[in-house]
Simulated assay, not measured.
Amino acid sequence: MHQGSCHCGAVKLTLPSTPAVATSCNCSLCRRIGGPWVYFEYGTVRIEGHPEHTTEYIQGDRTLRTIRCRTCGCVTHWEPTDPQPGAKHGVHLGCFDPALIASVRVRKFDGADTWKFFDEMPSSSEPPSTA
């Protein structure tokens, strides 16, 4: 089990398993609050201090609420506004030990434009111009 917290410790998170992959997103919100993010089935991450020590931000299509600590302001996770079976929970990996962060492969996601991982985007087959 991996345990993490916001900076002041009011919100504590326990992951249900060791993540293998995380996502670094460049959408308008993630590029401001950072990451990387790891995902688990909604309800499988144990969160202590939520909602009594947290506040939320809901943007855009209003499907996700981004949660942060009321005291220190650290973003800890996001959750669906209307959880359905199979829904995902995003957890900010920055709230955990740096050794865990270093052990996880981080994939870069283009949430600002294409909604694809950069390593899945087609690349040009032409060599760069030397002119």
Rank of each mutant, 00 (worst) to 15 (best):
P128N: 04
G35Y: 03
L29D: 06
D119F: 12
A20L: 12
D61S: 14
S123L: 13
R46Q: 14
D61K: 10
C95K: 04
T71Q: 08
S24N: 11
R46L: 14
G94M: 04
P19A: 04
S124N: 12
R68T: 14
T63M: 11
T14L: 05
K88N: 07
S28P: 08
H92C: 08
K88M: 14
L29K: 08
L13F: 05
T114S: 14
Q59F: 15
E56T: 15
L29P: 08
R31T: 14
I101P: 00
W115K: 12
D61E: 09
R65I: 10
V91F: 01
I67M: 04
R105N: 07
C27T: 12
P16Y: 02
H92N: 14
T23D: 02
I101W: 00
R62N: 13
G94E: 00
T114W: 00
W78G: 03
T14M: 03
A112F: 08
S124Q: 04
F109Y: 14
G90D: 01
V104D: 00
V104R: 00
A112Y: 08
D113S: 13
C6H: 02
C6E: 01
K88G: 12
G4N: 03
F109V: 14
W115Q: 14
G94C: 07
S103M: 07
H77R: 03
E48W: 00
A10L: 10
R62E: 14
Q59G: 15
T55P: 01
R62M: 12
A112R: 05
S124M: 08
